[in-house]
Amino acid sequence: MTGLRDALRRLAAEATEDPRPAAASDTRDLDAAVAALNQAASDTPHWSALSWTPGQPPSRQLRTSGRTASAAVSAIAEETITLFSQDTRHQLRACLAPGCVLYFLKNHPRREWCSAGCGNRARSARHYQRHRQNTA
């Protein structure tokens, strides 16, 4: 799982041109990150199954021929491949709030941070800098 996490971080940094050194991945090579992602996606066969009981709404269930944890990692890798291979990858942004190393999808024109907490930290840091400069 650590290898997949590092690969995802490297791919996200590539897609967003992430300038943050603190968010750097241990996987430095783009080809290695792609290979790790593809390996994780192919590790465990998984498929969707439809379940529909009369009188109940239909539901989707994940089936696997291997361990459930391996299937979950494989499904995460599969969703990542979908994200990076579609135009939604252009919505991916690095959160530039102080101390944050996360990424988010910019699904609203005014969204600049991964969470409200990061937005508050960024605004507080700007406020502190303005007032610190005025008193010096």
Rank of each mutant, 00 (worst) to 15 (best):
M1H: 11
T2M: 13
T2G: 15
T2L: 14
G3F: 04
R5A: 15
D6K: 07
D6P: 10
L8K: 07
R9W: 04
R9N: 11
A12D: 09
A13D: 10
E14L: 14
E14D: 13
A15H: 12
A15Q: 12
A15P: 01
A15F: 12
E17K: 11
D18H: 07
P19Q: 03
R20H: 13
P21S: 08
P21V: 07
A22Q: 04
A23T: 01
A24W: 00
R28N: 02
R28I: 04
R28F: 07
D29G: 13
D29W: 01
L30W: 14
D31I: 08
A33P: 01
V34E: 10
V34N: 08
V34P: 10
A35T: 08
A35L: 10
A35W: 00
A35V: 05
A36K: 09
A36Q: 14
N38P: 09
D43T: 13
P45L: 10
W47S: 12
W47P: 10
W47R: 11
S48Q: 01
A49M: 05
A49E: 11
A49G: 01
L50E: 09
S51M: 12
S51E: 14
S51D: 14
W52K: 06
T53R: 08
P54Y: 02
Q56C: 10
Q56W: 02
S59D: 04
R60M: 14
L62W: 14
T64S: 15
T64G: 08
G66N: 03
A69D: 15
A69Q: 10
S70C: 08
V73W: 13
A75N: 04
I76A: 08
E78T: 14
E78A: 12
E78D: 12
E79S: 15
T80M: 02
T80K: 00
T80H: 00
T80F: 02
T82P: 02
T82R: 04
L83M: 14
F84M: 15
S85F: 03
T88I: 09
R89D: 02
H90G: 03
Q91S: 14
A94F: 03
C95K: 02
L96A: 06
G99W: 03
G99P: 12
C100W: 06
C100D: 00
V101L: 07
L102N: 07
Y103I: 02
Y103G: 06
Y103F: 12
F104H: 12
L105Y: 10
K106Q: 12
K106L: 03
H108K: 10
R110C: 06
R111P: 00
E112K: 15
W113L: 00
C114L: 08
A116W: 00
G117P: 00
C118I: 02
G119L: 01
G119H: 00
N120D: 05
R121S: 00
R121W: 01
A122P: 01
R123G: 00
A125P: 01
A125M: 09
A125L: 06
R126N: 06
R126E: 11
R126D: 08
H127V: 13
H131Q: 03
R132G: 15
